[in-house]
Design a binder for these strands. Structure first.
Lengths: 226, 226
DNA sequence: CTTTCTTGTCACAGCTTTATCACAGCCCTG
DNA sequence: CAGGGCTGTGATAAAGCTGTGACAAGAAAG
């Protein structure tokens, strides 16, 4: 999930960037309106967070320009007391606003709300099911209190998706699609991937306790266990 | 300049830590009162920032204990509306308080004011994480008490950014963006830069202890919380 | 005008990750 | 009981990534 952060106050911009990165967003940071416009064109981020007071190209104009091209969610940063800014901002196409000074939590909450309204899936920082904790940003799992086990990119994607849908059985087709993309892999590859993943996280890979096999269907992450 | 941050809300604690780190403080982070007390004894920080609601040992008691041993400046984090907390906190020895939600800038301002009142010299323009001290202005690092090692501009930018985000893994894309800017560098250049930086700061570049590699992802600065 | 420093480019070795193949065991059906 | 379809297993090949060393262009310093 890419977010473009535009603010000419570098301290604040860094803080906003930090906050989003903490939530596993990919952050693109710019410090003036013109740069924001260029990067928006080049990167097409999932979300734009911008200060109304921007150098070289002000927030409202930028807002309008983006709106003319796409419906990328836009979150405005405004100063308390400038209610006119908010109204004007919403008129030119912003989706929501946050008044400075704001708490990072509030910012993220607003951002996620806006993204959800736009129909996007917001991915959490770490995924936890039962005693397994997956950290996709570091590509590692922790089983209970043990040392983290490093995972490969494909293993991470598979486990992430299985844990996201814990308790449900996912068909081979769905898994292939999600891990390798359309036209991606075949059954053999998935079989090997599951095997390698099990060898890393299952105490006894021959008697799996986390990743169950449902013959003729696919695989599922066992929800119970505590 | 060492600051001990104690807050059981990890998100908030991370944020406070980030803010201080940004101002080149060395941050020690703990999540409950007992840990705070232990680390205070061990580290003797220049400043303590603590939430009044701490597990295992509450903020007020902690405040008193510290006061009995030294006059380390203490900054309290309180919730709006709990005026009694503030009064009580100041009675048991806190030097100042900040009401949540607060802006990071405000927090740092209060912290520096308190430090000044205590007669300490505030914030040299260096960034400190673990035993590494980076002085971006002079473009040199110091490892522990050794002689400073000179860095090149690119090395400085990379290390500065890695240390700012200590403990997190930054992807190759993010690093490329931050060091060279958009349209800037490629993987080879980053690889070389990391190599050169390691050869300067790592005791054994083949077994890095500061800059970790996460295969397929990127690099991170190890947050040594020993 | 040299010399030194910084940065970018390239090729290579070693390792990790991924893909491919062959085979054995199991379960169902006929 | 035989055969086909799955699944797990092991071995091996191919592709990709990382660390390393060497070298050259360009800038900065003397």
């Amino acid at each position: 999930m890419k977010v473009l952060v535009a603010d000419d106050d570098r301290v604040l911009a860094d803080l906003v960037a930090f906050t989003f990165r903490r939530e596993r967003f990919q952050v693109i940071q710019v410090f003036d309106g013109e740069a924001a416009w260029q990067r928006w064109l080049a990167e097409r981020p999932d979300l734009v967070v911008l200060d109304v007071n921007l150098l070289r190209l002000d927030g409202f104009t930028l807002c309008q320009r983006i709106r003319q091209q796409a419906d990328t969610p836009i979150l405005l940063l405004t100063v308390r007391g400038e209610e006119d800014d908010i109204v004007h901002g919403l008129q030119v196409g912003a989706d929501d606003y946050v008044v400075k000074p704001f708490s990072p939590r509030q910012l993220v909450a607003r951002a996620e709300a806006v993204l959800r309204r736009a129909g996007k899936v917001v991915t959490p920082a770490v995924r936890q099911v039962g005693e397994l904790t997956l950290d996709p940003g570091r590509r590692e799992v922790r089983i209970g209190q043990t040392e983290p086990v490093p995972l490969t990119p494909l293993e991470t994607r598979l486990l992430d998706y299985l844990m996201l849908n814990a308790g449900r059985v996912l068909t081979v087709e769905v898994l292939l699609d999600h891990v390798w993309g359309p036209e991606g892999g075949d059954r053999d590859m998935l079989r090997q991937l599951v095997r390698r993943l099990r060898s890393k996280i299952e105490p006894d890979p021959a008697q799996p306790t986390y990743i169950e096999t449902v013959a003729g269907l696919g695989y599922g992450f066992v929800a119970s266990s505590k």
